[in-house]
């Protein structure tokens, strides 16, 4: 991947990241099949920047997020955080030091908290694991974090159990847990998708405010382009494990170049009954990327595909100006 895609001085820089999962085969069968969950993903994020990662379910968004945090070990590729290759840190002290600087907010606020722990235990867990401060100090940090995410007065919330809270409150607790150790990079995995529409904006606003306060870099995973537009400076579109388009959010949404992005955007409903938009039909349905052929992943469904697309490898991300990258031969 050319270095132009990934700025060299970025806080986090991902280069050609791939993850293959072996499919269970027969006991003595020698043929192994692989699901190419994520393949050749490259991007970079500066401190204070929110990068959106959008795509339909199963396209590898969450896997990418987990790869960045080393919850999953990557098959190929590099992840540079502050110049350190995270993909190859041996587990142990150095990995723990990396995790001191990153956090994750999970999609499901009901399952991402241990039901047998109080909010204090949940929020103080990263602090306790990294042995930051003493118990008194941690109580103060927890109280401050709770107050910061709008759960006031903190004393009344501190020793409650997650099941006593609403979904929105729980997601605020998840955010409080994430900011407690003052991370530099957060992976937010659809943090608002399971929340009621009426409280989504509050949570998104909070995340944007925190980004400002802590100069956080954030990978914001979503399938909702409206959310992406609200949250992200830059937006990446993924299809079947491949990044097909990357650029400034407005640019990608107003002027989509990749046929898949165009189809995706044309599928967003517009609250105007008289509005007529050019529908971009794509044929077939999303498949599993099991041992995919080397040509473009979108080829079987692409409305503008040519023989050239079939005869060549998956197109690389190319700059079409103003940092708008597209992986398509026909643009």
């Amino acid at each position: 991947m050319p270095d132009t895609v990934t700025a060299t001085d970025a806080l986090i820089k991902v280069d050609n990241l791939s993850k293959y999962y072996p499919l269970a085969s027969g006991l003595f069968s020698r043929v192994r099949h692989y699901i190419h969950a994520v393949e050749g993903v490259s991007f970079a994020a500066d401190a204070g920047e929110v990068i959106g990662l959008a795509g339909e379910s199963g396209c590898g968004k969450t896997t990418t997020g987990k790869l960045l945090l080393r919850l999953i070990a990557p098959t190929n590729g590099y992840i540079y955080f502050n110049g350190i290759d995270v993909a190859r840190i041996p587990s142990g002290g150095k990995l723990k030091a990396y995790r001191r600087q990153v956090q994750m907010i999970f999609q499901d606020p009901y399952e991402s908290m241990n039901p047998r722990k109080t909010l204090y235990d949940i929020i103080a867990e990263p602090l306790a694991v990294h042995k930051i401060g003493n118990i008194v100090g941690r109580e103060q940090v927890v109280a401050d974090s709770l107050a910061r995410v709008g759960l006031v007065p903190p004393e009344t919330f501190m020793f409650r159990y997650p099941h006593e809270l609403s979904g929105g409150q729980r997601q605020r607790v998840a955010i409080a847990r994430a900011i407690g150790i003052k991370p530099r990079f957060i992976v937010a995995d659809e943090p608002t998708s399971m929340l009621d529409v009426s409280i989504r904006t509050g949570v998104m606003k909070l995340l944007l405010e925190l980004r400002q306060e802590y100069n956080l870099a954030m990978l914001y995973i979503t399938h909702d382009l409206a959310v992406a537009r609200y949250m992200c400076e830059r937006l990446a579109i993924m299809y079947l494990g491949r990044m097909v388009e990357l650029g400034p959010t407005e640019e990608v949404l107003q002027n989509p170049l990749h046929p898949y992005t165009k189809a995706l955007i044309s599928a967003v409903p517009v609250p105007d009954p008289t509005f007529k938009r050019e529908a971009i039909p794509i044929k077939g349905s999303i498949s599993r990327p099991v041992d995919p052929p080397s040509y473009c992943r979108f080829y079987p469904r692409c409305p503008v595909a040519t023989d050239y697309c079939r005869e060549n490898k998956h197109p690389p991300l190319e700059d079409k100006g103003d940092g708008h990258y597209v992986a398509c031969y026909n643009v």
Binding site: L71, L95, M104, Q107, S112
Partner: peptide
């Protein structure tokens, strides 16, 4: 459960 993953992220 995701809270196990959350604990893993926390180091």
């Amino acid at each position: 459960k995701p809270f196990v993953e959350a604990a893993r992220v926390s180091g």
